[in-house]
Design a protein around this nucleic acid. Structure first.
Lengths: 220, 220
DNA sequence: CAGCCGCTGACACCTCGTTGACACCTGAGA
DNA sequence: TCTCAGGTGTCAACGAGGTGTCAGCGGCTG
């Protein structure tokens, strides 16, 4: 079981990390939101333990991004604030569970286990646009009922475009989301991939070019 | 969408019922387990919202019966008990989701919607896919009526793939579930086992490879 | 105890789809 | 007409995944 601990109070972070490792989990610990997002972009975690009050990128923002990325990670929000209002806010952001500080370590372990066991509260699973559908979980895309044979990158790009729901997505954004961050800024992969994708879609007009702004998906 | 609310605290029951109706759902409300079982015997519900602490027939028992009846209803367990032990117990009984009281109504609605959207979690005793069947309890798999002679690992892999129901399962996931956790991350057992399995299935196209994502079972 | 056999997992090697770079073309807007 | 963002064609390298094979292990049998 892979767990990411995001907590700026270093002593607590280390303690939790060590404790969870002793329980047999593979644990990564980071001290701020920026690094957290880096790790999340690269690795798959079963559970993310997230301190809400982070310096830099706020915990809520991290949570929002995890949800937006349709990650399969379950989020356990950890915070000093314990009013019901705040709790609901957290859950509203997509967190799967909530633990007010101070907490009992046993309880933390139990909750992490419980979260890992339960399937993520899944949001809309299938994108649809005209006769085009894309199911991220099943990794299947179809057009006019026929299955499209897309490569991983093509699939990723199409997923991003559909997620953007008609808004243009820049080449830089696509690079960042589909390729892993460290990409040469002068690369031409995106345009090549878009081209291949258009070809496989069979309807090149589905992906519009918005000059200087990127690509947008939508009916002709 | 049809919803059955089983909750003995009448005020809460009515409130939830009214609220869900306002959200456009067809809601039946009952105040105890006996009546609940009666309704369940007669009607088909998409989601059952079940208070765990019921007088008469206990919520756990109701849940057990829903699962035993192989109903297609998804169960959302509602309870005051919020210790993890109890929570885990509930999910163990076959409930699909769990919401500790007090809860935010918005969250209830969101979870009901999420449940209705996803196929029942209830684990079938026998998996079927085309002419392929697999019975985990009896450890028997057949294809086109003929028994397949599968080794334990092959059986485990096939079971995982069938349980994933068309979603791809990564080599890491298979390793974690079929082999015991502590596996060398560079092992190639999975691909070897998949190969043997394909051979024994006699229909290699049944197990598709999803590049970078794993293996998926499904009709060609 | 020796021999047989199926299961397992490790290699080494092969295949071919995927990927990304590069050179060149095109067309819209100034 | 000029410019340059974006489109196309092509090619070479890479690496994920498939295959063949072998050896160790453990259970069973004579």
């Amino acid at each position: 079981m892979r767990v990411l601990v995001i907590e700026d109070f270093e002593v607590l972070a280390r303690t939790v990390g060590t404790g969870l490792r002793r329980e047999g989990m593979a644990v990564d610990v980071v001290l701020d939101g920026v690094e957290a997002l880096d790790r999340l972009a690269v690795n798959r975690y079963d559970v993310v333990i997230l301190d809400r009050d982070l310096p830099g990128v706020h915990g809520d923002e991290v949570c929002r991004r995890i949800v937006a990325a349709r990650s399969s990670s379950r989020v356990l929000m950890l915070t000093a604030a314990s009013t019901v209002k705040q709790r609901v806010d957290g859950l509203g952001l997509g967190a799967d569970d909530y633990l007010p500080k101070p907490f009992d370590f046993e309880e933390l372990v139990a909750r992490v286990r419980a979260l890992a066991r339960r399937p993520a509260l899944c949001l809309p699973t299938v994108y649809e646009l005209g006769d085009l559908t894309l199911d991220p979980a099943r990794r299947v895309a179809t057009r006019a009922g026929r299955r499209l044979e897309l490569s991983p990158k093509e699939f990723g790009v199409l997923e991003c475009l559909l997620a953007a729901d008609g808004r243009p997505v820049s080449a830089e954004d696509l690079l960042e989301r589909v390729w892993d961050e460290a990409a040469d800024p002068f690369t031409t992969v995106v345009k090549t991939t878009i081209r291949r994708l258009r070809g496989k879609l069979g309807a090149p007009e589905l992906i519009h070019t918005v000059r200087e702004a990127g690509y947008r998906i939508g009916q002709p």
